[in-house]
Protein backbone atom coordinates (compact mmCIF):
# COMPACT_ATOMS: atom_id res chain seq x y z
CA UNK A 1 0.00 0.00 0.00
CA UNK A 2 2.83 2.32 0.85
CA UNK A 3 4.47 1.67 -2.50
CA UNK A 4 1.20 2.59 -4.20
CA UNK A 5 1.14 5.88 -2.32
CA UNK A 6 4.66 6.74 -3.48
CA UNK A 7 4.07 5.76 -7.09
CA UNK A 8 4.04 9.31 -8.40
CA UNK A 9 7.42 10.07 -6.84
CA UNK A 10 9.23 7.41 -8.84
CA UNK A 11 10.76 7.94 -12.25
CA UNK A 12 10.10 4.31 -13.23
CA UNK A 13 6.33 4.78 -13.30
CA UNK A 14 6.54 7.54 -15.87
CA UNK A 15 9.17 5.75 -17.95
CA UNK A 16 7.06 2.58 -18.13
CA UNK A 17 4.01 4.64 -19.10
CA UNK A 18 6.02 6.34 -21.84
CA UNK A 19 7.21 2.95 -23.10
CA UNK A 20 3.60 1.77 -23.12
CA UNK A 21 2.53 4.81 -25.15
CA UNK A 22 5.37 4.21 -27.61
CA UNK A 23 4.39 0.54 -27.95
CA UNK A 24 0.69 1.29 -28.53
CA UNK A 25 1.66 3.96 -31.05
CA UNK A 26 3.80 1.52 -33.01
CA UNK A 27 1.05 -1.11 -32.78
CA UNK A 28 -1.45 1.34 -34.22
CA UNK A 29 1.01 2.39 -36.90
CA UNK A 30 1.35 -1.24 -37.99
CA UNK A 31 -2.30 -2.23 -37.73
CA UNK A 32 -4.22 0.81 -38.99
CA UNK A 33 -5.35 0.67 -42.58
CA UNK A 34 -6.15 4.35 -43.12
CA UNK A 35 -3.85 7.33 -43.15
CA UNK A 36 -5.80 9.15 -40.41
CA UNK A 37 -5.51 6.15 -38.11
CA UNK A 38 -1.77 6.09 -38.67
CA UNK A 39 -1.62 9.81 -37.94
CA UNK A 40 -3.36 9.25 -34.58
CA UNK A 41 -0.86 6.50 -33.74
CA UNK A 42 1.97 8.87 -34.61
CA UNK A 43 0.56 11.40 -32.16
CA UNK A 44 0.76 8.73 -29.45
CA UNK A 45 4.45 8.30 -30.21
CA UNK A 46 4.99 12.06 -29.93
CA UNK A 47 3.24 12.02 -26.55
CA UNK A 48 5.47 9.16 -25.40
CA UNK A 49 8.60 11.12 -26.26
CA UNK A 50 7.32 14.21 -24.48
CA UNK A 51 6.39 12.26 -21.35
CA UNK A 52 9.81 10.62 -21.28
CA UNK A 53 11.57 13.99 -21.53
CA UNK A 54 9.38 15.46 -18.83
CA UNK A 55 9.94 12.55 -16.42
CA UNK A 56 13.71 12.68 -16.74
CA UNK A 57 13.54 16.46 -16.48
CA UNK A 58 11.71 16.20 -13.18
CA UNK A 59 13.89 13.54 -11.60
CA UNK A 60 17.34 13.75 -13.19
CA UNK A 61 17.96 17.19 -14.69
CA UNK A 62 19.58 20.02 -12.77
CA UNK A 63 17.79 22.78 -14.70
CA UNK A 64 14.04 22.19 -15.04
CA UNK A 65 13.48 24.86 -17.69
CA UNK A 66 15.30 22.86 -20.38
CA UNK A 67 12.97 19.89 -20.37
CA UNK A 68 9.83 22.01 -20.26
CA UNK A 69 10.94 24.08 -23.24
CA UNK A 70 11.89 20.92 -25.10
CA UNK A 71 8.46 19.44 -24.47
CA UNK A 72 6.88 22.70 -25.60
CA UNK A 73 8.91 22.36 -28.81
CA UNK A 74 7.64 18.78 -29.25
CA UNK A 75 4.05 19.97 -28.81
CA UNK A 76 4.56 22.64 -31.46
CA UNK A 77 6.13 20.15 -33.85
CA UNK A 78 3.22 17.74 -33.30
CA UNK A 79 0.74 20.49 -34.14
CA UNK A 80 2.67 21.42 -37.29
CA UNK A 81 2.90 17.76 -38.27
CA UNK A 82 -0.85 17.29 -37.93
CA UNK A 83 -1.57 20.32 -40.11
CA UNK A 84 0.79 19.15 -42.86
CA UNK A 85 -0.27 15.49 -42.69
CA UNK A 86 -3.98 16.31 -42.84
CA UNK A 87 -3.54 18.57 -45.84
CA UNK A 88 -1.60 15.79 -47.59
CA UNK A 89 -4.36 13.33 -46.65
CA UNK A 90 -6.98 15.66 -48.13
CA UNK A 91 -4.97 16.02 -51.34
CA UNK A 92 -4.60 12.24 -51.55
CA UNK A 93 -8.31 11.77 -50.94
CA UNK A 94 -9.18 14.24 -53.68
CA UNK A 95 -7.03 12.39 -56.17
CA UNK A 96 -7.72 8.77 -55.23
CA UNK A 97 -11.15 8.94 -53.51
CA UNK A 98 -9.66 6.79 -50.76
CA UNK A 99 -7.16 7.05 -47.94
CA UNK A 100 -6.67 3.33 -47.42
CA UNK A 101 -3.01 2.50 -47.32
CA UNK A 102 -3.48 -0.65 -49.42
CA UNK A 103 -5.05 1.23 -52.29
CA UNK A 104 -2.43 3.98 -52.55
CA UNK A 105 -0.06 1.84 -54.55
CA UNK A 106 0.51 3.70 -57.77
CA UNK A 107 4.29 3.63 -57.40
CA UNK A 108 4.32 -0.08 -56.66
CA UNK A 109 6.17 -2.05 -59.32
Amino acid sequence: MNALLQLHHQVGTYLILAAFLLATGIFGLIRRRTLIGMLIAGELIFAAAALNCMALNRFAAPNPAVGQIFVLFILGLAAAEVAIALSIILAVYRNYRSIHSTELSELKG
Binding site: L39, A78, V82
Partner: peptide, 28 residues
Protein backbone atom coordinates in the same frame (compact mmCIF):
# COMPACT_ATOMS: atom_id res chain seq x y z
CA UNK B 1 2.74 22.15 -19.68
CA UNK B 2 -0.43 20.46 -18.45
CA UNK B 3 -2.42 23.45 -19.66
CA UNK B 4 -0.51 23.51 -22.95
CA UNK B 5 -1.11 19.80 -23.48
CA UNK B 6 -4.87 20.19 -23.12
CA UNK B 7 -4.89 23.37 -25.20
CA UNK B 8 -2.86 21.98 -28.09
CA UNK B 9 -3.81 18.31 -28.17
CA UNK B 10 -7.46 18.34 -27.15
CA UNK B 11 -8.25 21.81 -28.41
CA UNK B 12 -6.33 21.86 -31.67
CA UNK B 13 -4.99 18.48 -32.79
CA UNK B 14 -8.08 16.40 -32.07
CA UNK B 15 -10.43 19.00 -33.56
CA UNK B 16 -8.32 19.22 -36.72
CA UNK B 17 -8.28 15.42 -37.02
CA UNK B 18 -12.08 15.39 -36.65
CA UNK B 19 -12.25 17.85 -39.55
CA UNK B 20 -10.05 15.49 -41.53
CA UNK B 21 -12.38 12.59 -40.70
CA UNK B 22 -15.34 14.66 -41.92
CA UNK B 23 -13.68 15.61 -45.21
CA UNK B 24 -12.47 12.13 -46.11
CA UNK B 25 -14.11 8.79 -45.49
CA UNK B 26 -11.80 6.69 -43.38
CA UNK B 27 -14.39 4.05 -42.46
CA UNK B 28 -14.96 2.01 -45.56
Amino acid sequence: LALMQILIYVGAVCVVIVFGVMLSEPDE
